[in-house]
Design a protein around this nucleic acid. Structure first.
Length: 427
RNA sequence: GGAGAGGUGACGGAGCGGUUGAACGUGCCGGUCUCGAAAACCGGAAUACGCGCAAGCGUAUCGUGGGUUCGAAUCCCACCCUCUCCGCCA
């Protein structure tokens, strides 16, 4: 959530900055709401003050056994009560409306974010590795999976409809190996604490990391309950610190969480209908950091590096881009996407998204720390995929494919595959 | 799922209709004493919001949301959570 004080004091500057996102801040609407709020809140508090004073007088009158005075004061209180009740109800409505307005405003972007409104306006930061030159025409993961019998979309469709996958045999094991490898790397080499968390969270938690009102269509909801399947473990893990004040010396908190992710609108745009690039269910190892505000941009660079390290160890060519203003997510102040090379598509495709949310999520969650002066202050939160497991599987399959349709196992994963070096075709 | 107990400040723990933002203790910060420290003593200390240039004043907050009342941490209702016992279960 954006700081309301900022809207009150510098709304024109805020509107200008938000415009680079393509977001139109309704300055007039906010002004009107704010004016109304000020008026109603002040009136309400004055009435409450009168009621409190009156009640106190009743108590004093009763202590002096002045029943006549007490009765008169109580009659006054009854009258006041009715006016107050109406005013309080109005106040609740106005406050709620204002809260709603503010909670729908996206985060302010960092000054370093490139201006643009199309995905192609992302700015490349660096590249690692050279796409392999194939002596044959490389297949995509769907064909490779069909040949190996390891990816079965037909059976998945029978079970749950489109955009799911069934994995079998060595491919299923490779999928598991990749997740284990990522988790081990982040905990052993990058200083993250492995966590296991619920795959279902409350609406309040969802609203803590983004705007639930705005994005609930992307989520699977549990019927008749205020509970949602997580679209990423960012949801439960970042909320570890909701409504808490973290001691200064405990920062930074670093968590790595392996979980399935469920996304309802995964295919709404009609993109990537083939294969398992974009499914309703996929696994991901998520990195989450809770940090001191002064250190969040350093942490952002580090976290992105931790995600990249996985691709370097797997020797998968990739690049890092900074998303442009129009393409950066609602809660984020700055986002790096890591894109891996997919020979089957002859393109770099997103495999990780690493964001600094500054205090935007912390304000929604009321996640604070006790600062150097002993005062509570909002933390900064970050997260990034480290990495999406299914897409990493695709990248390994496509980049390590052999002319005969088999898959070489990257050296870093062989240990996790019981020493296996190749997934061979059975035909 | 059934039966019972309970949710109060950093923590422990009182309060069970009136001047209680909340006794008391521990912890924390400042001071006195001391060569220094401990002990003892004195003092201070919640969060959010509103109005105000400021000093300051006001409002809200005792799990959450409603209700009763002139007045609710205290009474009533619903929900959530924790603990104990029973049942069921990977």
């Amino acid at each position: 959530m954006i700081d309301v004080q900022l809207l009150r004091t510098e709304i024109d500057a805020v509107a200008k900055r938000l415009a680079t996102r393509g977001y139109v801040l309704d300055v007039a609407a906010f002004g009107a709401l704010e004016e109304k709020r000020r008026q109603v809140q002040t009136a309400t508090e004055q009435l409450q003050s009168q009621r409190n004073a009156l009640a106190k007088q009743v108590g004093q009158a009763k202590a002096k056994r002045d029943d006549a005075l007490a009765a008169a004061l109580m009659r006054q209180g009854t009258e006041l009560g009715e006016t107050l009740k109406r005013m309080e109800a109005e106040n609740t409505v106005v406050q709620e409306r204002l809260r709603e307005f503010v909670s729908l405003v996206p985060n302010l972007l960092d000054a370093s974010v490139p201006v643009g409104n199309r995905p192609e306006d992302a700015v490349e930061q660096r590249r690692w590795g050279e796409p392999r030159k194939f002596a044959f025409r490389p297949k995509d993961h769907v064909d490779l999976g069909a040949t190996l019998g390891g990816l079965d979309f037909d059976t998945a469709a029978k079970l749950a409809g489109a955009r799911f996958v069934v994995m079998k045999g060595a491919i299923a094991r490779l999928h598991r190996a990749i997740a284990q490898f990522m988790l081990d790397t982040h905990t052993a080499e990058h200083g993250y604490v492995e966590v296991y968390a619920p795959y279902i969270v409350t609406g309040a938690c969802a609203d803590g990391v983004t705007s639930l009102a705005k994005f609930k269509g992307d989520l699977f909801k549990i019927e008749d309950r205020d509970l949602y399947l997580i679209p990423t473990s960012e949801y439960p893990v970042t909320n570890f610190v909701r409504d808490t004040i973290v001691p200064l010396e405990q920062l930074p908190l670093r968590f790595a969480c392996y979980s399935p992710c469920f996304r309802s609108e995964a295919g709404a745009a009609g993109k990537d209908t083939r294969g398992m690039i974009r499914n309703h269910q996929f696994d991901k190892v998520e990195l989450v950091q809770i940090v001191h505000p002064a250190k969040s941009y350093d942490a952002h660079e580090e976290l992105t590096g931790h995600a990249e390290a996985i691709l370097r160890k797997l020797e998968l060519p990739h690049r890092v881009v900074t998303l442009c203003t129009g393409d950066t997510g609602f809660s984020s102040a700055k986002t790096y996407d890591i894109e891996v090379w997919l020979p089957g598509q002859n393109a770099y495709r997103e495999i990780s998204s690493c964001s600094n949310f500054e205090a935007f999520q912390a304000r929604r969650m009321q996640a604070r720390f006790r600062n150097e002066k002993g005062k509570p202050e909002l933390v900064h939160t970050l997260n990034g995929s480290g990495l999406a497991v299914g897409r990493t599987l695709i990248a390994v399959m496509e980049n390590y494919q052999r002319a005969d349709g088999g898959i070489d196992i990257p050296p870093a994963l062989q240990h996790y595959m019981g020493g296996l070096k190749v997934i061979a075709t059975s035909r």
